Simulated scan of single mutants.
Amino acid sequence: MIQVGIIDDEELARKVMADYCAKIDHFEVVLNTGNPLEFINFIQGNPLDLIFLDIEMPELNGLEILGALKNPPKVILTTAYSEYALASYEYGVVDYLLKPIKIDRFLKAINKVSPSDWAPRKKESDSQELQIKHDGIPVNIPFRSIQYIKSFGNYIKIFTDMRMYLVSETLTRISGQLPDNFQRTHKSYIANLHRVDKATKGSLQIADNEVPISTTYKVLVCKALDDLAKT
């Protein structure tokens, strides 16, 4: 069975999507919630194969939730706003459905996922280093030496104890290569929580640098810091 999650703050939209999923023999809806935080808590201990994710929600934006996930499942975005379409594909989503969603459009979206995509995801690497290319030369950076990563146009800047690396990459793609102690704090920043010296409402102090925490990511950062303190 394909484990499916539905995350949408509109009750009617969740019901429509659940009804559609019920028509698919190999779909099992194991999470149906209007609370993004419930989804975040759930997925940490319960792998999902596919999620239908709303974008505009009161507490957290769906795209930014997606950007914060290390190894997200297959994602079909659902929204009433067409202006997010272009930005959504940066996150490698399967499809983008505009509300109200008709059954034929739903079927077209799920048929974009090939059977091989439902295979179990590979276990995360036990590597202790981030592999990048800097000026065309392969470089291995120990995770422990990375303080934070910042988006810089079509590049990212990786700040380590010794130097800064400029890499042609996006924060979304690089986040999939990072261990759990790295957390998105802002649309333009990822922080190594093991290196945090001090946390305030609006920023994280790492060595001599301040990494901003945006309102959208505040809840995620607080939860990640709490979880880290318990380990």
Rank of each mutant, 00 (worst) to 15 (best):
E129F: 10
P100S: 12
I6F: 01
R195M: 07
V211P: 03
D54H: 13
M17C: 01
A68G: 05
I149D: 10
I110R: 00
P142H: 11
M1F: 07
G45D: 13
A18K: 14
Y96A: 05
I110Y: 00
P73D: 10
A80E: 02
S116V: 07
F182W: 04
D226A: 12
G67W: 05
V113T: 15
N35L: 00
D180A: 15
F42L: 04
L178E: 11
R144P: 01
N140E: 08
Y20F: 11
V30H: 04
Q44D: 15
S214C: 08
P179Y: 05
R105P: 07
W118R: 11
S82P: 01
D208W: 10
K201C: 03
Y81W: 06
I6M: 00
K15M: 05
E59M: 05
N41A: 13
P73W: 08
A85E: 11
K112I: 02
P100K: 08
E129P: 01
I6A: 03
G136L: 08
T215I: 14
L48G: 15
A18C: 14
G136Q: 05
E11F: 02
Y84F: 10
S175Y: 04
E169D: 15
E10A: 13
R105M: 10
Q44C: 14
G45T: 12
Y96D: 09
D54Q: 12
V196F: 02
D25S: 12
Y148D: 05
S203P: 09
P115C: 14
K198Q: 10
C21M: 03
P212E: 10
N41M: 05
A87D: 13
L31G: 04
I51M: 13
P73Y: 08
N192G: 06
F27Y: 15
K198P: 00
